[in-house]
Design a protein around this nucleic acid. Structure first.
Lengths: 137, 137
DNA sequence: ATCAGTGCAAATGCTTTGCATCGGT
DNA sequence: ACCGATGCAAAGCATTTGCACTGAT
């Protein structure tokens, strides 16, 4: 993703385009990990020593509100960010704490279909994801 | 669940039976909420004013290690405890932060079957749960 | 020029730790 | 009596907040 595309992405959320936002969005979108705020901070600090961790938090939060990234909480209660917006599932390695994406249209379809046929009383479903815990082998 | 049954449950985990453990286990097991440590503390303090929050945390942690309760992290990064050990899914109300159990043998079976037929390379699945986000209506 | 964005440091909230004392076996 | 459990207070860590300054439009 080039600078223009990132600029477009940020502006599409109705946000001002700044250098910090650029590097933060770039860091989140070019990794396939599920970065923490701290990780993003460390990454961009090399090329941007004056940035502050508070700004990273605020900016990530702004992105989440603008719906250009997603966030979730890992098994240790730490925030993780993800530039992939489509709903998908996660594999949690209990030993290493690594988080990998697991995407399967079949699984998504299966579950969506299940809830179409089995409505929950008094509850409006907005988003479904599967949490798969185990370990790499 | 009477005192004897709770005593049995605690001892079955190889743990000393103490008054604090009794009331803490009782509090967790008799609610259908998904209590936080703070909530448990408030509950038992009424009848047990000298108990400390640190003890509540330590005891809940001990129970988790002894596998007589489960813990998970909610959307705000706060620990939640649950005396129901069987795997089950949760409904998260995005507006009120309420968490309800959702148990469906059909859904469990559907997903188990899916992963039986679709093994994940390099990953050993131990536990699967579905996170359903939305809001009460 | 304006007003949102940023940097810094202090504050917050939940959880863990250290250590002296207590209590179950 | 022993050794783990408890109570209390302090520390830890991720995250948020307040506020003066900076910079994009």
């Amino acid at each position: 993703m080039n600078i223009e595309a990132i600029k477009e992405k940020i502006s599409s959320g109705g946000l001002k385009f700044t250098h910090q936002r650029m590097v933060i969005y770039e860091a989140v979108s070019t990794t396939h990990n599920h970065p923490t705020a701290e990780w993003v901070y460390e990454q961009i600090r090399e090329r941007n020593p004056s940035i502050s961790l508070g700004t990273v938090y605020k900016t990530l939060d702004t992105f989440v509100n603008a719906k250009i990234i997603q966030k979730f909480i890992d098994n240790n209660g730490v925030m993780r960010f993800d530039a992939i917006l489509e709903s998908h599932s996660h594999l949690y390695d209990k030993e290493t704490n690594e988080i990998r994406d697991y995407r399967s249209e079949k699984l998504e379809a299966l579950i969506k279909d299940f809830f179409k046929k089995n409505k929950i009383d008094d509850f409006e479903v907005e988003d479904i994801s599967v949490v798969i815990k185990g370990h790499n082998k």
